[in-house]
Simulated assay, not measured.
Amino acid sequence: MSRLFVAIGDSFTEGVGDWDSRYPNGVRGWADRVAKQLSKQDPSWRYANLAIRSKRLHQIIDEQLQPALDLRPTVVSVYAGGNDILELRTGITPLMESYEEMVARIAAAGARPLLFTGFDVRLHPVLEPMRRRNWIYNEHVRRIADAYGALLVDYWCFDEYHDPRFWDVDRLHMSPAGHRNMAAHVLRELGVDHALRSKPLRPRPSLTLAELLRKETAWWGEWVLPMFGRRLRHVTLGDHLEPRWPEPIHPADGLKRLAAERRAQPAANG
């Protein structure tokens, strides 16, 4: 009997930062990489990815959880709540109560939950309250993982992510190197041998103080302020996106080929 890996969540799981126009929604991501390696171990593995960028926990529960469980998965990966933590008006206690109910439903359905802590991102002092909220979130995730026998990828502990080359230019999403490295951590937690190898990282640029200040100013203008602006307007980057792999596929058939076939379908039907 074939096994099924289903990924739900937000931009972390959709693959934002690992940009590749050959894949659905223009991204690849760690989950696609994990699915490919699972298929190399056993070609009968199937894979679905329902994650969409910017989704909050209640949206992931309302829109993704039951469709995921209806697929009768073997493993369900969940990274959810990160976007809620950024909203200081959202209470951590009710948030984590909902998170635990979600994990309980996954376990009760007979699937193995695969959970993640959040990374201890070094933030500007203005954003320090969000960092403290992340610590509290992580403690809850560890407790819930233990209570429900979930696999836990303790992202908070991965020191290599202090290297900026593991991050995209927005500093909030992993770069291709970061996604590749995360896939290796997930496969290790799943107990799966894999062929993923770290590629040489690009050299670190040597910047003057003036260049660093310009870069910091540009980051605030291009990424941080627009993000909070979207929150005030109640719009997100995922509002018009569909899940990347809504129906189970066999990664052994080739993810790029499957994506190309899917892009060709509307033209063929038109």
Rank of each mutant, 00 (worst) to 15 (best):
L69K: 07
V75Q: 03
A267K: 02
R262Q: 12
P200M: 09
S198T: 14
H234D: 13
R204K: 11
L187V: 03
L123P: 09
S175L: 11
Q66C: 00
R142A: 13
D170S: 05
Y137S: 05
Y161V: 07
V235Q: 12
H185T: 05
F12H: 07
R112E: 14
R202G: 11
L258H: 03
D42T: 01
N269F: 12
L50I: 07
H179C: 10
Y148K: 02
V153D: 06
E211R: 08
E216V: 03
R46W: 05
T74Y: 06
R204T: 14
S11Q: 07
R105Q: 13
E87D: 15
A31E: 05
R197Q: 15
Q265R: 14
V141G: 00
E247A: 10
A48F: 00
E139Y: 00
A267M: 01
I144L: 04
R72Q: 14
S54K: 02
Q64G: 08
V75D: 02
E63D: 14
R244W: 00
G270F: 09
R231C: 05
E160V: 15
R204G: 03
G29H: 10
R143C: 10
A260C: 02
G178Q: 01
T217A: 15
D18G: 08
H124D: 15
K55N: 11
S54G: 11
L127D: 04
P94Y: 07
K199E: 15
F158R: 08
Q64W: 04
L86K: 03
A109E: 03
S77T: 14
Q41G: 14
E101N: 09
Y79M: 15
A218M: 08
A104R: 14
V235N: 02
N83C: 12
R72G: 14
G149F: 04
A68W: 00
H250T: 06
R244Q: 15
D146P: 00
A145V: 01
H234F: 10
A35P: 06
A104L: 04
P94N: 01
H179S: 05
L86H: 01
P243V: 07
R46N: 01
P266K: 04
M102I: 07
P248A: 08
W135L: 14
R262G: 03
P94R: 02
S21V: 10
L57N: 04
G221E: 10
N25T: 02
K199R: 15
P251C: 00
V34Q: 03
V78Y: 00
R204W: 01
D10M: 06
Y23I: 06
P176K: 02
